[in-house]
């Protein structure tokens, strides 16, 4: 059923709302359905608790089925599988250990969850970072939904970042900018390329504090030798926009572009994920920047070519555009 032929009576709308909630809980919703669910939820005064109860029930049922399987035909024992050690990948174990090590030095922020903005980022694991902000989102407590606010960054996996050890060492003695540039191996290419202007061509409403930096192309084939662009970023609004021309049109099923923002207030080894985007056509393409975490002081913007959905930590194999803001 679509919005076009949606039931109009209150009871029918409520019925349809419930159908959408079941869909959401069992197989997910497409964008149109999600919008419709949002609308109906507002119209019907659906609380967050009501909204997630179907997801809760589906999760319980999934565990109940698993529990039945574990119990076996007799239903008498659940211990057989307990000691059955699965071939849990050692590589994943290592990744999780590193995740735990990073988390041990940080603190979750207000229980937020990657929202739909993250949904477009495919397989990325978002970065997170410490924050002192208290939990205030009582209305969405225990709500693992798309209504959640963007999350604070999580520090990625240093060991999985080729060259990060070198960058870490260098960073101890070098300036943040140098460390960031070396981490990316692009210091020679970006030196002098990025210039901050005050009269950027990108219109960022209500952004009196916005800075504009010019992107410089690398020798990567996707940059075509002449790609250009600007990044306009407002620290106050925590939003920005890129205007790019000359980058190769990408097939999102094959590869995508990903923006990285180096933040002077954060660990220079772990640039902020600025989002995955596509270049669907030639000419100037305007791309909003959706940094999932707060960017304190951006000092370097870089665009890489990554697999569909983006990555957690870039191997920096293909950097197409970069710009310094300081």
């Amino acid at each position: 059923m679509t919005a076009r032929n949606a039931p109009q009576g209150p009871a029918a709308r409520r019925d349809w709302l419930e159908a959408l909630l079941v869909e959401e809980a069992t197989q997910g919703l497409c964008a149109d359905q999600a919008d419709e669910l949002d609308r109906l939820a507002r119209e019907c005064g659906l609380s967050e608790d009501e909204r997630q109860v179907w997801q809760h029930t589906a999760a319980v049922c999934e565990l109940a089925f698993a529990s039945e399987r574990l119990a076996g035909p007799t239903g008498s024992s659940t211990t057989a599988a307990t000691d059955d050690v699965v071939a849990f990948p050692s590589s994943l174990d290592l990744r999780l250990q590193q995740l735990a090590a990073s988390a041990a030095q940080q603190r979750p922020v207000d229980g937020s969850r990657p929202d739909d903005g993250d949904a477009g980022s495919g397989g990325r694991v978002l970065d997170f970072a410490p924050s002192t902000r208290p939990s205030t989102d009582a209305a969405t407590a225990a709500e693992p939904s798309r209504f959640s606010k963007p999350a604070e960054p999580f520090v990625g996996d240093p060991a999985s970042s080729p060259g990060s050890a070198l960058a870490w060492t260098i960073a101890a003695a070098a300036s943040l900018m140098c460390a960031a540039a070396i981490w990316w191996g692009i210091e020679a290419r970006t030196a002098g390329a990025g210039t901050t202007s005050t009269d950027g061509t990108v219109d960022l409403a209500s952004a009196g504090d916005a800075i504009t930096v010019e992107l410089a192309a690398t020798q990567d084939p996707a940059a075509g030798g002449g790609a250009t662009g600007t990044v306009r970023w407002s620290p106050g609004l925590q939003t920005g926009v890129m205007r790019i021309s000359g980058l190769a049109i990408n097939d999102p099923e094959v590869w995508q572009y990903q923006l990285w923002i180096f933040d002077a207030t954060r660990d220079e080894r772990y640039p902020v994920d600025g989002g995955v985007f596509d270049i669907p056509r030639s000419g100037i393409v305007e791309i909003p920047i959706e940094a999932k975490i707060e960017v304190g002081k951006p000092i370097l913007f870089a665009i890489t070519v990554e697999r569909p959905g983006g990555v957690v930590v870039s191997d920096r194999e293909r950097i197409v555009l970069a710009a310094q803001s300081v």
Partner: peptide
């Protein structure tokens, strides 16, 4: 799996 654990870390306060 790693993504889910990050989600859990972020969502822990909502439990």
């Amino acid at each position: 799996v790693q993504e889910i654990f990050v989600d859990l870390w972020k969502s822990a306060a909502k439990f």
